[in-house]
C-alpha cells in the first residue's frame, strides 16, 4: 500500500528505505574507495597490459564490481534527495528523477559490462 504525499513523493516506508540504503552504500564505499585510490596510486603510469591484468585479477574484479554497484546506487539516491530539496513542481520532479535514474543506470551498466568484458576476455 504505497502512500502518496501531496508532492508526489512516496510514503514513509520508502523514505526510510531510501535513507537507510544511502547510508548502507556510504558505509560500503568507505573501504572500497580507499582501496580504489590506493590501487590507482600503485598503478601510476602502468601500461595497457598491466592495467588489463590488474582488472582481470579475480579479487580486483569482485572489488571493482562491488564498488561500481555501491557507487551508482549511492549516487542515484543522493541525487534523488537533492531533487526533492530543490525541485517542487511535480512534473519537473518526476521527469528529472527518471532522467537521473536512467543516467545512473546506463553508466553503471557501461562500467560493469567493461569490467566483465576485460575479466572474462583475458
Amino acid at each position: 500500500m504505497a502512500m502518496q504525499t501531496k508532492s508526489g513523493q512516496s510514503g514513509a516506508g520508502d523514505a526510510t528505505k531510501h535513507w537507510w540504503t544511502l547510508r548502507l552504500t556510504a558505509v560500503a564505499l568507505v573501504p572500497l574507495a580507499v582501496w580504489f585510490v590506493a590501487s590507482l596510486v600503485a598503478l601510476a603510469g602502468a601500461d595497457y597490459p598491466t592495467m588489463i591484468a590488474w582488472v582481470s585479477n579475480p579479487f580486483v574484479t569482485v572489488l571493482l564490481l562491488s564498488m561500481l554497484v555501491s557507487l551508482f546506487y549511492h549516487l542515484r539516491l543522493g541525487l534523488q534527495e537533492i531533487v526533492e530539496d530543490y525541485v517542487h513542481a511535480r512534473r519537473a520532479k518526476i521527469v528529472l528523477s527518471v532522467a537521473l535514474t536512467f543516467g545512473c543506470f546506463l553508466l553503471a551498466m557501461a562500467t560493469i559490462a567493461a569490467v566483465l568484458k576485460i575479466a572474462i576476455g583475458s
Binding site: Y48, M51, I52, V55, L71, F72, L75, G78, L79, I82, L107, A110, T111, A113, A114, V115, K117, I118
Partner: peptide
C-alpha cells in the same frame, strides 16, 4: 552536497576510463 554532485559528474570520466580499457589499446 557540491562534492557529491561533482563526483557524480566524475563517474562519466570513470566510465570513459573503463570503456576505453575494454575497447582496446588505441582507445585507452
Amino acid at each position: 552536497r557540491a562534492t557529491g554532485v561533482a563526483l557524480g559528474l566524475g563517474t562519466i570520466f570513470l566510465t570513459w576510463w573503463l570503456m576505453a580499457l575494454a575497447a582496446g589499446p588505441s582507445a585507452y
